[in-house]
Design a protein around this nucleic acid. Sequence first.
DNA 1: CATTTTTCCGACCGACGGTCAACATGCAAA
DNA 2: TTTGCATGTTGACCGTCGGTCGGAAAAATG
Lengths: 204, 204
Amino acid sequence: MANQAKCNQILDALQKILLRKNIQSVSVSEIAQEAGIGKGSVYYYFPSKDAIYEALIERNYEKPLETARNLAVQTEISPFTRMAMLFQACRNSSAEFLREESSSDLPSVQEKAYVHQKYLTHLVQSLKPELTSIIRQGIERGEIHFDRPDALAEIVLIVLSVKLDNTLVPSSKEEIEGTIGGLVKLLERGTGNPSGSLNFLTAF
Amino acid sequence: MANQAKCNQILDALQKILLRKNIQSVSVSEIAQEAGIGKGSVYYYFPSKDAIYEALIERNYEKPLETARNLAVQTEISPFTRMAMLFQACRNSSAEFLREESSSDLPSVQEKAYVHQKYLTHLVQSLKPELTSIIRQGIERGEIHFDRPDALAEIVLIVLSVKLDNTLVPSSKEEIEGTIGGLVKLLERGTGNPSGSLNFLTAF
DNA sequence: CATTTTTCCGACCGACGGTCAACATGCAAA
DNA sequence: TTTGCATGTTGACCGTCGGTCGGAAAAATG
């Protein structure tokens, strides 16, 4: 029931369409046509259109997730360095999907909202345990002073994903950097680290 | 061209339907029927279905926004007290709209995602200037030590709205309180305030 | 080869968002 | 009163969509 190749063929088609036309909504027939199969076949591999989107988002996050899982275990590297690597992996992966810039919001904004919401959810939920683990190790090492590693991880992930997405709260590049900079400062003071020690977060 | 009463009549209908059936998507015909008018009339007052949602969300945020604007000017009250009042106003307003709890996610999650995204956007965008102003006054008074009031305001609003919504990153009540508690601790340390001084944020 | 299972399909369905020409209503000018 | 125009109001209608389904095609099984 799960021909992996065909599934990926469908996901490739959707991704290709999303890159081509940034804003408009995508119909299932369109996906099928791009994939070179009949519309009925799409529903042989996926139960619904939403499921296709979900699968595509999940697939796009496989790589950074694996990176995160690997990083969480590499205890010989400094926690801060690992955090930097994790964020870089996220940035690369996010950037691949969020190509819009152009304005016209008129047609069917709902589908877009759905994709962005799913992204945010996936990113926070899947990366939180790994980042928590890294932070916890930093606490044990005495490099981070904070007693709620999970809360800290979630806060950081939420702010970063919302700001990096830039759809939920649209801002200029300067505003984004300003907010991230403020978050870094807040983290530095909150975790008992000297000013500038977390600057890697602001590298864009 | 803008019969305010009829517009509100339509918005009332949508709100009523949303409260009645929490999950399913709402059709324009349904809104019209609930409002007791023809479907065509709906499009006489609103250019699209999305616009109806947008207007409803905007209307629901009028009250807390006005509260925020008033609070920003009341310089005789302590900035922290004003922040507490602002958050309480937000909570009351949010709670009015986000009644779901029940599970079944199956039918048309997109419309829901759209509403929640719009809410987040509105809340952060409209409240950020007011909260920034309040924080800035706190800085001038020497009660808050932080050099980026706007970034601080945005971070707080983003984390709070995401966590209070609980759709974007679903969590248990304990997890929400844990994250908010972590944010409070981070804020206390980051703004040079003693532990426990910002506890009003955690009152649920 | 026959037969069973898996894969594939496009015509079809109900429902939706949105349009439109016709129609009602009110009201001021002739 | 009659005329004309602006403002509302309507439901039938349109194109499209997500999803279904019965059966064709292909692959696997013996």
